[in-house]
Amino acid sequence: MVTFDLFRQLALSLPEVTEEPHFEKTSFRVKKKIFATYVAELQIATVKLSEIDQDVFSSNDRTVIYPVNNKWGKQGWTMIEMKRVNEGLFTDALRTAYCEVAPKNLRLQLKQNEGE
């Protein structure tokens, strides 16, 4: 299980991330591009992945991580059941989503920070 407080902490630890409202959701953005959202009442996160990454993460357990069931899902938006996901898998998915939308210089900065 991953709490929203941990989600927020992980997201805001990434380079140049901001937290902003997005309709009824909380969104996390890099350079104004959304890479993750959270719906509190459902305890569901949604992250932006490539089609390949979406398939890889979803293949682990489609009851925990799965594509959004509409055209957004075909564009890589992937739902994560926060009550059921383990922290390691969630952290990997969140970082992958960040790298999907972040500019190259910020992706490199993140990789350099991970190497320290």
Rank of each mutant, 00 (worst) to 15 (best):
A93Q: 05
P15Q: 03
E87G: 09
F28S: 03
I80P: 07
K111F: 07
E114K: 15
D5C: 05
E41R: 14
L6A: 10
L110K: 12
K71D: 01
A11K: 05
T91P: 10
E41P: 14
G115Y: 05
E100G: 11
G115P: 06
Q75C: 09
G76M: 08
R95S: 01
E114Y: 13
A102V: 08
R29E: 00
K33M: 08
V85Y: 14
P103R: 11
F35T: 01
I34A: 15
N113Y: 04
R95T: 01
V17L: 07
T26Y: 06
T26R: 15
Q9P: 03
R107V: 12
Y66I: 00
R84W: 03
L94P: 15
K25H: 10
A40W: 03
Q112H: 09
T3E: 04
D53W: 11
Q9V: 03
V101Q: 13
P103W: 10
T96H: 13
E20H: 10
E100N: 14
N105T: 02
V2Q: 05
H22K: 13
S58Y: 00
G73T: 01
K48Q: 03
F57Q: 01
L94F: 13
A36L: 07
V64I: 14
A97T: 04
V30W: 09
D92Q: 14
F28M: 03
N69C: 00
A11S: 09
E41G: 12
S50A: 02
G76E: 00
E87A: 12
Q75I: 01
P15A: 07
K83R: 13
V64G: 07
K71H: 07
N60C: 03
V68S: 14
A93P: 13
S13C: 07
S59D: 01
T78G: 13
D5Y: 04
E51S: 12
F90P: 11
F23M: 14
D53K: 14
L10M: 15
E24H: 14
K31Q: 10
K33W: 03
Q75G: 07
N60H: 07
T91H: 15
R107L: 03
A40R: 11
N69V: 00
S58N: 02
F57R: 04
L110I: 02
I80E: 00
K48N: 03
P15H: 04
D55M: 06
L94S: 15
M1D: 02
T46Y: 12
G115N: 11
N69F: 05
R62S: 06
D5A: 11
T96L: 14
P103C: 11
K48I: 01
E100K: 15
S58T: 00
W77L: 08
S13M: 04
E87Y: 10
Q109I: 02
K48W: 05
E87V: 06
E20P: 06
D55Y: 07
E24K: 15
V30E: 03
V30P: 12
W72N: 06
V47E: 01
N86M: 07
K25Y: 08
V68D: 01
E81A: 14
E51V: 11
G73L: 05
Q9C: 09
Y66M: 00
D5G: 06
E114T: 06
N86W: 08
